[in-house]
Design a protein around this nucleic acid. Structure first.
Lengths: 237, 237
DNA sequence: CGGCGGGTTGACCCGAATCAAAGTGCGTGG
DNA sequence: CCACGCACTTTGATTCGGGTCAACCCGCCG
């Protein structure tokens, strides 16, 4: 919480790795045990609280980050300083790939919910790729996924009425979660994601709640439960 | 023009390659002369008139396409069948990269202006990459550029007033052209690009023209001349 | 000639932005 | 412990930009 303290990363251990929920999803999912153990020596782990910055756009990056768990937003700022969310990363996603091609990060990465990341030196990835050409397929797949995501943002989350956009966003968030639940975004974040104002996002969410299409489970208040059926209707305009 | 005729591709020759304006821009720009000559044997060239389709989303692709010249739109269709333009390709850009990771094309590619493409078998690119690990950097750079473009579409072309969006689009198109000119889009395409209706795009363009900020050179009617100064003011809201 | 695709323009209406105020939950310090 | 401030949400009143529907123009081609 205290600002401007140098962030502490601790070395990743095989135990971390074995317990990691991104283990079978991430960039290195295909790598065999022994090679993975070698790579692991250079991995570093750290946790981020909501609103904390993982990296800043414009910054020259030397690392990619694999999300062990949590939710991270990738944002850009317009000339006028308005934040626009251009991507979301969830468990297993790799972010900061711009460092692989030796350009400054193009986006700023900020934690939305409490998140843990595994920091991997870009040089290590480049080197590993050099020795294992089949690995570059994994890298390309990863990029392909990012592009698909960006397209989805353009087609689904930036077009249609405010109601449709919010519904589609909720469905998108629920999609990769269990029990039709999703981590909760602030209304401001929803607005930044959907190209709407905070007030409009709030109005729509409140309305959905009144209609019973979404609700907030008592047990953990940072999640939102969705009536996928009903939202689906709204989502298609 | 006649529909459903199998499209004709002709083999690329060293002469084509030497004359290609994408020569120093494209994916293979770094490849040395002799290797390039080898690869060239598998390259095929074809021209597309406006509205002609290069490939369709959903289709399993076996090729990537390098744009020798012209302008191509990359589109997605919403559930309701509305077209949304999620990308643009210009001279030197490579499209259809999804075929490298062996997934169906995610977008449909359609020529806007008369365009010529160089078709490259995905298998060849994969194989070349296998033998030349340093090449995968080029591939990643290419993907990185696509992502940056998608982000630009989200931040610049999908937010702000209709006036600002149109101005930004024109500046974007002019940016990589000479003489402050750009190829001409239909109002419908502008709408699909900017998340606006055809009528709104038309109104704004007509207004800009009345104000003298844009004009259509008599010599070639398919281009548009822009007052970068004036548009810049509008672009920043 | 008539039809057709693209562009322009007008009248009207609606949805979302804007400006404003009040409610809610939470942490901090008196 | 309570009071206060702060961040976030909700709600209301009003405005306005862009969507919608419709008419008309123009160049082109069959």
């Amino acid at each position: 919480m205290s600002p401007h303290l140098p962030r502490i990363f601790r070395p990743a251990t095989p135990v971390d790795c074995a317990a990691c929920s991104a283990r079978h999803l991430d960039l290195f999912a295909g790598v065999d045990r022994t090679q993975r153990a070698e790579l692991l020596a250079s991995f570093q782990i750290s946790a981020f609280e909501p609103k904390e910055i993982i990296y800043n756009m414009g910054q020259m990056g030397e690392f990619i980050y694999i999300l062990r768990f949590g939710l991270i937003k990738l944002v850009r700022y317009s000339a006028s300083g308005v934040e626009r969310i251009v991507g979301l990363a969830r468990t297993g996603d790799s972010i900061g790939m711009a460092s692989l091609v030796s350009v400054p990060y193009r986006r700023t990465a900020i934690a939305i919910s409490r998140s843990e990341v595994c920091r991997v030196p870009a040089a290590l990835v480049r080197e590993y790729n050099r020795g294992n050409p089949e690995f570059s397929g994994r890298l390309l797949e990863n990029y392909q996924t990012s592009i698909d995501l960006a397209d989805t943002f353009l087609t689904d989350l930036s077009t249609g009425s405010a109601h449709a956009r919010v519904a589609r966003l909720l469905l998108f968030l629920v999609e990769k979660s269990d029990h039709n639940e999703s981590p909760l975004l602030t209304r401001e974040e929803m607005g930044a994601l959907l190209g709407l104002t905070t007030e409009t996002a709030s109005r729509v969410v409140a309305e959905f709640r009144r209609k019973g299409w979404i609700g907030f489970p008592a047990e953990h208040a940072d999640r939102i439960r969705c009536d996928v059926e009903a939202l689906g209707k709204i989502a298609s305009e």
